[in-house]
Amino acid sequence: MNERVEPVYLEEKLEEIRADGHLRYRSRSLPTWCPGCGYFSMADGLTVALNRLGLDNKDVVVVSGIGCASRFPFFVNTYGFHTLHGRVLPVATGVKIGNDALTVIAVGGDGDAFAIGAGHIPHAARRNVDMTYLVFDNGIYGLTKGQTSPTSALGFRTSSTPYENGDMPLNPLLMLLSYEASWVGQAYAGRPHHLTDMITMAIEHKGFSFLRILSPCVTFDKTDNTYRNLGMKVRDIPEDHDPSDRLAAMALAMEEDHPALGLFYREDRDTLGEVMQDAARKAQAMNLAPKGL
C-alpha cells in the first residue's frame, strides 16, 4: 500500500489523466454525492475500465434504479437509463435483448438491489443475461436521509431503527452464488485500483457478472461502515481460492467479519442471448405449429 513514496506533482498528474483518455467517459454533470462518498471511486473506476476496454461511449448503456448510487448514469458520458426503484435489472435485460450489441452496465445501491428489487436478481442471474451489475453497498438508505437497509448490521441505529436494527442482514454474495450468477466478485471503494480491475474483469465476463462494492456512507453512517472500520476488516481473497469452486466461494462469502476482496466465482455458460439464438435456430428447424391450428 506504499504507492505514494515518490512525490506526485499536480500538473504532471493532470497531464497524465488527460492523456489517459478515460475522461471522455465522464459527463459534464457534477455528481451529487456527498464529499468523501465512496461512490466517487466507483464512477472513476467505471470510466477507467471502459477506457481500458476501449468501448465506444455510444455502445454503452448504464442503467440504474433509484437511490444515491442510481444517480450514476448522469455522471458518465454514455447512454443511460435512470429508471424506477428496484427495476434496474429487468430494464437492463430489456435493453440487452433489444440490442445485443450494447454493453449494458446495471448499477444501484443495496436498497434498490436487495429490498425492493430483490425479486429480480435471481432471474437476471439464472438467465445469465450478458451484463454487469455493480451494487454499491453502503448498508443504508442515503437519498431518503438515513434509514436501515437489508444489509445494515444488527444493532445499527438509523432514523427507522431508533431502537436498533433487529433484522438479520442479507449476505449478497451468498445470494448471488446460490442464484446461479456466473461471475461473483467483491471490491471496496477504499481500494480504487483493485476496484477498477474488478470492474474491468466483470465487464469482460461473458454472462451475468455481479460485483458487490463495499462503501461507506460518510453522512449517515458514522459508526459501522466507515473507511476506518472497513479498511481494517477487508482482506485480499486467499491466493489459493479456486474461482471455479462454488462451495469454497460460499464458505468465503460467509466470513462476513473479514470481507474478502476479489473474484469469488466464475463459470462459462450460455448467455440469454445465446439461448435465444439457439431458440431461433430450433424454430427454423422444427417449424412448430402454434397451439390450436
Binding site: 448503456v61 442503467v63 437509463f81 429508471t83 424506477l84 427495476r87 429487468p90 430494464v91 437492463a92 435485460t93 430489456g94 435493453v95 440487452k96 435483448i97 433489444g98 440490442n99 450494447l102 425479486g119 429480480h120 435471481p122 432471474h123 438467465r127 440469454l272 435465444m276 431458440a279 431461433a280 430450433k282 424454430a283 427454423q284 417449424n287 412448430l288 405449429a289 402454434p290 397451439k291
Partner: peptide, 29 residues
C-alpha cells in the same frame, strides 16, 4: 412459437413488473 421463427426474441419474465420493465428497456434500445 412464432417470434423465434421470425428472428425475434421472446422471454417469459418473473412477473408483470419485469415484463413491462424489459419492454420499456427494449423500447429504449
Amino acid at each position: 412459437v412464432e417470434l423465434p421463427k421470425a428472428g425475434g426474441r421472446f422471454l417469459q419474465t418473473e412477473d408483470e413488473i419485469s415484463a413491462i420493465s424489459a419492454t420499456i428497456g427494449a423500447g429504449f434500445a
